[in-house]
Amino acid sequence: MASLKSPPERERHDEPGPMVPEPFVVRSKRQDTSDTWTLELTSVADDAGLHFAPGQFTMIEAGGSGEVPISISGDPGEPDVLVHTVRSVGLATQAICKAQPGQVLGVRGPFGNSWPVELLEGRDVVVAAGGIGLAPLRPAILAMIANRERYGRLVLLYGARTASQMLYVDELERWREEGFEVHATVDSAGPEWLGHVGVVTRLIGRARLTASFAGLTCGPEIMMRLTALALADFGIDGEQLYVSTERNMQCGIGHCGHCQLGPWLLCRDGPVFDWQTLAHWLQLRDV
């Protein structure tokens, strides 16, 4: 009841509230796959991007078609531009993906917590990404590469549906040169694909992982569950595995209730959790 008669100190009312978007202009745009685009944006006000930590997201919208949570996929060391990789799956994401250079979009954020890249310094780290789940992991990968000497082995396991659905194909080779062991696989392939075919968890057995590793994973929930199981076989338990979660985030600030998972508001308390913390709640049905 203490808050009742003594609400928090009044903020300056000329500061916009947390639900008000800031105009950002599309600087460039690149098509990654048949349904996924990467946009680079800068603020109309100061021609800069956003300072963010790897794993954080923004709420973004185009042309009055509704707002969606999208992870930031840029380089945290280069906050002069805001980078988002967006898959066109609904009305709002379709409008964002259609935006052309020069178009002004609305952005709120950044929101949420981040991948524990600093906590993991001194460790071996395996990054397991499924599909567009590589986008939220890209800032963590770039942050670890920027401080390559602070980590032991760095391993990326990346699974996609097909070769043409793989993100950042040009970059995978560069990451390899910069100290990541990169293993990629696709669920199905034609004769033109000369890499691995099979699900991403099959890569775990091939990457010579040990209990010294910590993991970061992002992808469809089923993929992350199976990844957690497979990593446990190599002694990497749930406390050493960090996942990025998804529910129906609508406000980004813990006010709208939509992204609840049991005791957590994923937008406020996440999106990054250690697997141990979440496993019980994800195993319950329909929570």
Binding site: S3, P7, P8, E11, G17, P18, M19, I253, G254, H255
Partner: peptide, 14 residues
Amino acid sequence: RVLLGGSHPDPAER
């Protein structure tokens, strides 16, 4: 506590 207690208080509610 829900609308004002976090790191992004709702200015209209306040």
